[in-house]
């Protein structure tokens, strides 16, 4: 069977999403035993990452796969080996799936041209971070009571959209799940043509609440956006006032989400991160089951095991 890559969520469908989330739910409930037994999963991380790497490794191991991990430090990657050469090497070693994190958009797509293994994009530059969006949907459906409950919900995507691969995955995925989206960000944190998505752009989180947001999805703000050659944000207090999610925003029943790691007091007020209205812990907790499901589907072992 040809490998099923997961490179982007641009163009994804409701049926695709449901397939992953249904399987993830089975895995989360522990009813499926070691579907990846005998499979080799390679983690190739060309960019520092702790949370995503650990989550993928746990997902692969828990599902029974053998895991090879190439991170920056101490590997051929650190010695400057190129993307394609690394992929070809992993392919030759018999990898069944390659989980790739890379600083340049399009890296996963290029990698997939050079291997028979399934390529899972674990984040490429500002491009895509598909498993983040999938685990977000898993956490949100869990909170709302099922995948079908996503339909018609309103999500405000808040913050640094221009630099965010998470934004580029959640926008098409949340839309495919039937949700209505808006963007909340200063223009300095948006692409010049932010109209490319055809979404309304709101001037503050307060406006997003007035718009009726059910979900406030805050993106991480790199502190260096405030310094450097052309600063994009004046200060933390200014940012937090207009683009930070605070307790007052959650009073009407909205929930807050964030891909992590959170800058407390910047994107999300410190007292809200672990609040009952926060799905941030649920997002992290969803990672392992969702990534196990993605790996299983990519190697086409999911259905047979479930059926058995």
């Amino acid at each position: 069977m040809p490998a099923r890559n997961l490179l982007t969520l641009e163009g994804t469908s409701r049926a695709d999403l449901r397939e992953v989330l249904d399987l993830a739910r089975d895995y989360a409930s522990g009813t499926v035993d070691r579907p990846l037994a005998g499979k080799i999963v390679c983690l190739a991380f060309f960019e520092a990452s702790t949370r995503t790497a650990v989550s993928f490794e746990l997902a692969a191991r828990r599902a029974g796969a053998d895991v090879i991990s190439l991170s920056e430090r101490g590997s051929s990657i650190q010695k400057g080996e190129g993307l394609i050469d690394t992929i070809v090497t992993l392919d030759s070693l018999g990898a069944d799936a390659i989980v790739l994190r890379h600083p340049a958009a399009g890296a996963a797509r290029l990698a997939a041209l050079h291997t028979e293994a399934a390529v899972i994009n674990a984040g490429d530059g500002r491009g895509q971070h598909p498993t983040q969006a999938l685990l977000d949907l898993h956490a949100l459906s869990g909170h709302l009571g099922g995948f079908d409950e996503l339909e018609g919900r309103k999500v405000a995507v808040v913050g640094d959209v221009v630099h965010s691969r998470v934004a580029r995955s959640i926008i098409p995925a949340f839309r495919a799940a039937g949700m209505e989206l808006a963007i909340v960000a200063p223009q300095t944190l948006l692409p010049l043509d932010a109209g490319a998505w055809g979404l309304p752009v709101l001037p503050s989180v307060d406006d997003a609440v007035d718009w009726g947001a059910d979900v406030l999805y805050a993106l991480r703000l790199q502190k260096e956006r405030m310094t450097g050659g052309s600063p994009r944000v004046p200060s933390v207090p200014e940012y937090a006032r207009f683009y930070g999610v605070a307790r007052r925003h959650l009073a009407g029943g909205a929930v807050v989400m964030h891909p992590g790691p959170v800058n407390r007091g910047v994107e999300v007020a410190g007292d809200v991160v672990l609040d009952a209205s926060s799905l941030i812990p649920d997002q992290v907790a969803s990672g392992v089951a969702v990534r196990s499901a993605v790996l299983a589907l990519s190697m086409d072992v999911a259905r047979s095991r479930v059926a058995a």
Partner: peptide, 23 residues
């Protein structure tokens, strides 16, 4: 160079693809 910080034109294609744009 203070404006040309990207690798492609800062337009719809850059926004959707996730590429740093230069206006």
């Amino acid at each position: 160079h203070t404006l040309a910080t990207g690798v492609v034109h800062d337009g719809a294609a850059a926004a959707l693809a996730g590429l740093p744009g230069s206006p």
